[in-house]
Write a protein that binds this DNA or RNA. Sequence first.
DNA 1: CTGCCTCGAGTTCG
DNA 2: CTCGAGGCAG
Length: 684
Amino acid sequence: MNKPDKLSGISSEVLSEIYDIRARLKRADFLYYVKDQPDISDADYDSMMRRLQELEAQYPQSISPDSPTQRVGIAPQSEFAEFEHRAPMLSLANAFAEEELRAFDDRCRRTLLLEPDESPQYVCEPKFDGLAVSLTYIDGMLSAGATRGDGYRGENITQNLRTVRSIPLDLKQNVKDIPSLIEVRGEIILTHDEFERINSERETTGEPTFANPRNAAAGSVRQLDARITASRRLTLFAYAVGACEGLEFANQYEVLCTLGDWGFKVNPDVRVCDSIDEVVGYVGEWGEKKDNLSYDVDGMVVKVNSFDLQTRLGFVARSPRWAIAYKFPSQQVRTQVNDIEVNVGRTGALTPVAILEPVLVGGVTVSRATLHNEDEIRRKDVRIGDTVVVQRAGEVIPEVVEVVKAERKGSEVEFVMPDHCPVCGADVVRESGEAVARCTGIACPAQIRETILHFASRAAMDIDGVGPALIDQLLNRQLIRDPADIYSLTVEDIEPLDRMARKSAEKAVNAITASKKVTLDRLIYALGIRHVGERTGAALAQRFGTLDALKAASVEEISKVPDVGPAVAASVAAFFSQPGNIDVIEKLRTAGIDPKVEARQESAIFAGKTIVFTGALQKMTRDQAQGMVFRLGGNPSSSVSGRTDLVLAGEKAGSKLDKAKSLGVPVVSEDEFLEMVSRAEDES
DNA sequence: CTGCCTCGAGTTCG
DNA sequence: CTCGAGGCAG
C-alpha cells in the first residue's frame, strides 16, 4: 500500500511518525466506536488528530484514503454517482406472527428433505431500524460505500461512509486471511442519544427536526456535504457479506465472528438456535427487550446458518428462501374517521379513502388511509364517525387496522359506494367477481388527468417538471386534452400560468423535447393500456418492434408474448380499436415520436448464445456490454453453467472465471470481446 | 382446478 | 406497501 516513489521528499522520521499516529488513532477509534471501551482521553485523541493533520498538510503526498483524517469529511459533491453492487442486496420476506415463523421452518425442512426430528441451525439477530449499506474492501482497504438502492444499484456515498467511525478504513490483519475483494453489508443507525442531540441542535438553529432516528440516519448519510455527515455520529453494524473473492465462509455465524475480528461492530445479541422453538422463544424475549435499548429495533432476522443449506434452499423472486424477517407489531394509535372520500384513478377505479383526524404515528402525522375497496370497508365495518386503530403498514403506509366498536355512539354513517362518478357523473359499475367499482365515463376528467400524469411520469416518458400542478392548470385552460397535446406546448403557453416563471417553463419544454427520444417499451407503458405495466410494455416492445406492428396485431398474435394471456391481449387490442387512442398515436408520430426496437440480428455472432460477464469492466458499463450482446442475438446471463457459451472476464474476475475454466467455457478479455463486436458490426 | 408467483394499480408523507 | 387478478406449472 506504500508507494515509495510518491513519498520521496519526506524524511523517514516524519513518515514513521505519521504511520505511528495513524495506527494509534485507528486503535482508539476501534476501542471507542466498536468496543465501547476507550483507552485514551478525548483530549489526547484530539491532539494526536491535530498533529496528524499538520503533518499531512505539510506533506500532502503522504495522505492516503485510509488515514483517520479522511473521516472528517471532504468538500461537497454535486450529486451521487450510481454504484452497482457486485452481488445484489436482497430484501427478506416478512413474518408478522409465530405461525409464519413456523411455516418458514416447515418450508425449509421440506425443501431440504429433513426428517421430522431434524432441524437446520438458525442464526437469530435483532434487526436494527436504519438503512442498509454495502462497503467494498479491496485487499483489505475500504474502497467504496453505497446505499442499498433497488438492491442492484445504489448511490455511491463513499465519502460519507468514511466519516463513520465504526467503519474500519482497513481490515485488521493477522486475524484471518484478508480476501482480495469483499462486500460487507451492514445497517447504519443513530442511537437515541445522538438522535436527541441532533434534533435539539436543529431546534435551536430553527431547522426542522427529524421524525425518527431512521429518517435522521438516512438524511445524514445522503448529505452531499460529507462534513455534515461527519458531525452526526452514525454507527454501523455489519451483518453479512456480499461478493467475496479469495475467502470462503461455511456459515452465517462464522461471517459475523470474522466481521467482528476484522474490526466491525456486530450485533451483540446474535444467537444460534437449534430449532424453530428456540427461535420463537428468542423472538418472544425480544418483544419486550427491544423498547429498553438505546437504538431502534424493528424485528428479528432469522437465517439458516449453513451456507451449504442456503445454497440448496435458493431464492424466490427477490428474496432468499433461507431467511425471514420477523417484524414486531407496529405502533398502533386510535383516531377518528371524519369522512370517507372517493378517488378516481387512471383506469376509472373508485377507491375509498378514510379522512382521519390527524394523529402522530411513529413520528409522522397521518391524516388519510386507503380503504382499498367496498369489500374491505364491509369486512372491517368502517363507518364515518368511527373510532379506529391505525398503524403504518411496514412502517410506511398508513392503514386502518380495526374499528373500536365499543366507542360507537349510533350516529356513525355507513359508507355507500356512489352509483355515479363523483367527478364526471357517469355510471359506476362493478363487474361480477371484481373487487373494484369503476367509472364508465369515456371522457371522465379525473381519468384523463391521471392518464396524462402517468404518461409524463418517471418510468414512462420521464418528463421532468411536468407534474400535477402544471397538468391541472393546462387542463383547466384547455391547453391540453390528451397526453399527445403536451408536444404542442410552447414556453409562451406555460409561462403565464400560476407559479411558472420563464425558467421553469423553459425547463418543462426542454424536458418535453428530450422525452421524444423514448424507447418503445416506455412509450407502450406510457399509453396507459389497462393491464400493461412496465414489464408487459417491455415484453410487447421486444416482440413487435414498433407501435404500428403492435397496433396491427391480432389478439392471437398478442397472446403469444410470454406472460401475456387472453385478458391482457384483449385489453391491448381494445385500446388500439378506440379512434381516440389512434388519434393520440398519430399526434405522437407527428411530434416525431415513433421509436423502434433495434432489430436483433438473428444470424449475428452471438445468436442463441448465452454470455456471462465477470469482473470489473474498464471500457464500458455492464449495461452497454449486455446491450451489445443482445443486439447481436445473444442472451446476457449472470451465472456460469454448462449452458454458458462465452465468458467475458474483466479486471479482478473471481469465482465465475474459475468455474468457466473448469467447465471448459471459452473466456475472452474485454478487448477481444470489443473486437468481436466491431467485426460483427462491420460485416452487417 | 388449484396453488403459486409476478405484475399492475392505487396510495402516504416529507 | 398492499391488494387483487392474470398467467402458468403441476
